[in-house]
Design a protein around this nucleic acid. Structure first.
Lengths: 209, 209
DNA sequence: AAAGATATTGACCATTTGGTCAATAGAATC
DNA sequence: GATTCTATTGACCAAATGGTCAATATCTTT
């Protein structure tokens, strides 16, 4: 019948096409999670035949790993620039926690949770997950170390505290993924928790106008 | 050729067979996660034809949801009995946190993480996940409320604190799932965090022989 | 305009998934 | 021993997955 539902994709340079496919995968992941990043779904999204996606990517496993990295690393950069504008470690830590928990990144949280699960069967992804966790932890740790150096925070192991804090906010976000709606503000109580970890007086991390 | 790889399964009563299938699913989930709970995998594990599993279960979605509930609810019961033996809320909370984070339940943690992700596409599972989270939260909340009543803890919103604590430990466990090996003891720092949330002095939740 | 290079595609393939259903085998009952 | 009941099965099916490859269309160069 010769009824091609999709017109032939305009020819692009390999670099452009690769970028287009990566963007399609990224958009899919943000909208419907990593599980939606399939060969055909990405192809449809990019307006391209499935075979082209397979042609441009060594395997779906690595496309998923790359897509995860793309989604998550953008978040880290975003936070880093946000922190630069703040005066001291205490303000930075407060904003850091509140920003991560403000509920505006549930799409990214879903990607994180799926990555934890999928990493069990996708070694490339698992490696990337660890790398991205390291990046996050490094950001938090540097803030804590600055606070310790300034005499504002009190801990013997900034790295461990950073890991704990990261795990805590990840867990709270993951929880919100399932319980959206009937849960209270995520950021309010954790400040007290962090204060406890860093030997701060109650309310030290609260907003200050 | 008539070479049936598997001998015909001995006849059982429907109740027995249903239990056998449920147990097979449960074992699979604990060994390889919910993703491994497929029609054929469960059948093989139960020593039965795939069609029989389909016959005994309305759909795989509900089998997975039931399996999740089976795995997770057992954990809650386990913890509850453990807490009963302890004298006061402070001891209970300390043991509660340390037990959940002792790293001996990574198989269950994997099931949790997968459930969070799969719940997006399996509404039956999502409902069950919320129910089990409620159960966990209720246990924690009751401990906190007892502590507040005894004048040991200080908080205006035990329910919210319980949710936060639950999210925190879930996150730490999930983190450990990916980073097993090179991470420090999960339970040590969180005690300080909890102390911060409940207005306790530093070290109030530490082990006391 | 012709030739060459290559981005793109359709047509396959093997595998895995959940699921249906008539046929079969075996225990219980008559 | 014959009949009834039903637990169990094999043989299918449709759908979706990742992936391969020769053919085709389109741009670039001659």
């Amino acid at each position: 019948m010769s009824t091609p539902s999709r017109p032939r994709a305009p020819r692009m340079s390999p670099a452009e096409r690769a970028l287009s496919i990566a963007n399609a995968a990224r958009a899919l992941a943000l909208e419907a999670g990593l599980a939606a990043v399939t060969l055909r779904a990405v192809a449809a999204r990019a307006g391209v035949a499935p075979a082209l996606v397979a042609h441009y990517v060594p395997s779906m496993d690595v496309l998923i790993a790359r897509t995860f990295a793309s989604v998550v690393s953008a978040e880290v950069v975003e936070i880093e620039t946000l922190l630069e504008a703040l005066p001291g470690p205490r303000e930075q830590l407060g904003v850091l926690v509140r920003t991560i928990l403000d509920g505006s990144r549930d799409d990214v949280t879903l990607v994180w949770v799926e990555a934890w699960a999928l990493g069990r069967r996708n070694e490339t992804l698992a490696t990337e997950v660890r790398a991205q966790m390291d990046a996050w932890q490094a950001v938090i740790q540097s803030v804590i170390e600055a606070g310790v150096a300034a005499g504002e925070f009190e801990t013997e192991d900034p790295a461990a505290v950073a890991w704990q804090l990261l795990g805590m906010v990840d867990g709270l976000n993951a929880q919100a993924l399932v319980r959206w709606g009937d849960l209270t503000d995520r950021g309010s109580l954790i400040s007290h928790a962090v204060e406890g970890m860093l030997g701060l007086p109650r309310g030290a991390l609260d907003l200050r106008a």
